[in-house]
Design a protein around this nucleic acid. Structure first.
Lengths: 363, 363
DNA sequence: TTTCTTTTACTATTCGTTTCGATAAGTATG
DNA sequence: CATACTTATCGAAACGAATAGTAAAAGAAA
């Protein structure tokens, strides 16, 4: 139905090949005058190249497949936006397939994408760390976000959780706190391991001794923040501040503190992690670490473009650092620029990377 | 790079056309034995049809374009999921383009999609009500969700806001409330108009006279719920319940009530609208009307499939009804099955439809 | 056996592009 | 003026799949 090269050629009174060359300005083996004429005509008739047909010849479709574990999870949409915005600037578009944590669906997704002759695949947020046979078969470049692949982080964009935890805990230290509790996620999650490491980094740096009774293990859910605080409050030397490894547990902690007749931040300060919507809606609003999801998306897209346009090889993982968002739950004046980050931490040693699940649905 | 029909034919020792017919089982002009053999071989070699090449011949790509005003807005992802899940069941996939409320980008998006030879376009959540020249040019079927087009709702899926408002207000009436306030959205929004209509429907049905002093106009933001309640509390005969036209304003209302030393739901009941995440995290949790976004997505996809597969014509709009989610903010026991809906309301008369903006970013 | 059907498989063309090699001018070089 | 080199254009062959038209083989009827 749409206008084709042939029709354009007929109207322009020249051959198809000339029209083609005039439009794909890579080659300027065509007279400037006729080129202008053809370009005008194309605009006038509303010509749009058939990318599928072009891809057939060139083996490039300027379309990237996005395999996402769940498009409705809190971090995914903004990450996708980052990816799409960056791709669009380079005239690439994307096909998104949601896999719902189902390995079989992921395989099917990869096949679907190959069938649609995409140029490459970006995998977003999946806890799977097995290799994917379908992918090897595809022979297309791929990039991972928040994900371990084949036991390595090769060619992926990751959040530096250790750094993020440092930001949060150091903020508390700067506010004068010395007894700081941690409500962490399940101990075998990589993000928990890294956040714990960051927590300890800061303690060590400031000469505060590590007290295991101040560390609780939660489930990432609101409910799990509550009992953790109950325990802390019964300690003889109870903490004056809490770092919760995500905002939901931070919220649970705040509720527990309030239910005990105490108030946040006056009696106990709380820092969260993730900067979910709730952090800016709760009372008090929650100081938290904001992962730069949008930027991570852009980076992933750039990594892909590097492979496609510049033929770059696989790279080492890129670790991205989050930002501290200062709100009410710590007593610092909101909106204040966070103090500079002082604690140095080495990049996570390989042994830290035991089990990676990225960001999980409940988180 | 991937296996082609040619290669398959060579290995199977027969012609390309035979292989083609064996795979697209439409035609059974092929021996059962050879067919099985070919199917096995295809599986073995990992053959996947090149959909672009196929589309070139058949003019069908089994790919639907999704033009979305913002993929990161609260309702969009789940709606997209509904669309994609339903499409996938019918072997269709989709290309999503986010337009950021920019009419020019929307035009560009439509062109991009045409260039990628999609079979049809679904427009999701956009406030624009002008016609789209690019679209007319496309000559492809389209379907709208949450959106007016060319002054009509033709071929679209919409939320029945009037019904939703009835649900919320009747719940309050059933709990014994007679002085019920409304915190509405901006008066010129179609959703505000419909929610007000639903509110009045219930009052009328139960013989409660309408009191304009009990209606406040908010901005959909949390902040705007706060002053509205302040005013209500100063009334000589103050309301015992509030229906807020969205959850954010409901939250603002709750904060205002609590700051006045009163408690929710004991001193004042509150119902929200939208069932955002905050509604299940706040304290108290908020009773609210949940729009069936997922189902709306499925419906939109089905509408599209009807046009494509069954050659159906444009249809009248489909109005979808939300559900009341009972939580703590009204005093009814949470989880209880909501009372049956009794108030009858006519479908919104045309004059109701003045200015439609669908669901807006800040909402 | 011959002729007519039916079944099965093949050849050639097409979809909209890109691109290689060819052609036909025009221009410079000797 | 012949030769070499540009420059501008064209024709035709792909790319991977579908399909109309057709031929060959097999089977049935004469």
């Amino acid at each position: 139905m749409p206008v084709t090269l042939h029709e354009l050629a007929k109207v322009a009174n020249c051959s198809v090949s000339t029209v083609s060359r005039a439009l794909t300005d890579s080659d300027h083996r065509v007279n400037e005058v006729t080129k202008k004429r053809i370009l005008n005509l194309a605009d006038q008739l509303g010509y749009h190249p058939n990318i599928a047909a072009r891809g057939l010849k060139t083996d490039r479709t300027f379309t990237i497949g996005l395999v996402v574990y769940n498009i409705a999870s809190p971090f995914t949409p903004i990450l996708i936006r980052g990816i799409q915005e960056h791709l669009k600037q380079n005239n690439y578009y994307s096909i998104i397939i949601s896999t719902d944590w189902d390995p079989e669906l992921e395989s099917a997704a990869v096949h679907q994408l190959i069938s649609r002759s995409i140029d490459g695949i970006i995998f977003v947020e999946s806890w799977r760390d097995e290799s994917n046979k379908a992918l090897d078969l595809a022979n297309k470049p791929y990039v991972f976000v928040y994900r371990l692949f084949n036991g390595t982080y090769a060619n992926s964009v990751l959040l530096d959780d250790r750094y993020g935890a440092c930001l949060a805990v150091e903020h508390l230290v700067n506010l004068g706190h010395r007894r700081i509790a941690l409500i962490n996620g399940p101990h075998d999650w990589n993000s928990s391991i890294e956040r714990l490491a960051g927590y300890r980094d800061v303690l060590e740096q400031y000469g505060i001794s590590f007290d295991p009774t101040l560390v609780a293990e939660g489930t990432w859910e609101v409910q799990s923040g509550y009992p953790a605080v109950k325990n802390f409050l019964e300690l003889p030397d109870r903490p004056t501040a809490i770092f919760a490894a995500n905002d939901l547990m931070a919220l649970g902690a705040i509720y527990a503190i309030q239910d005990a007749g105490l108030s946040v931040p006056e009696d106990m300060a709380v820092v969260g992690y993730d900067d979910r919507e709730i952090a800016s809606l709760s009372k008090p609003t929650i100081t938290t670490v904001c992962p730069p999801s949008f930027e991570m998306g852009k980076l992933a897209a750039q990594l892909m473009l590097d492979r496609l346009e510049n033929q770059n090889e696989m790279q080492d993982p890129i670790r991205v650092q989050g930002k501290l968002i200062i709100r009410e739950s710590c007593g610092a004046s909101p909106g204040k620029v966070p103090p500079e980050y002082h604690v140095s931490h080495t990049n996570p040693p390989e042994l830290l990377i035991r089990k990676w699940r990225g960001i999980n649905p409940g988180e």
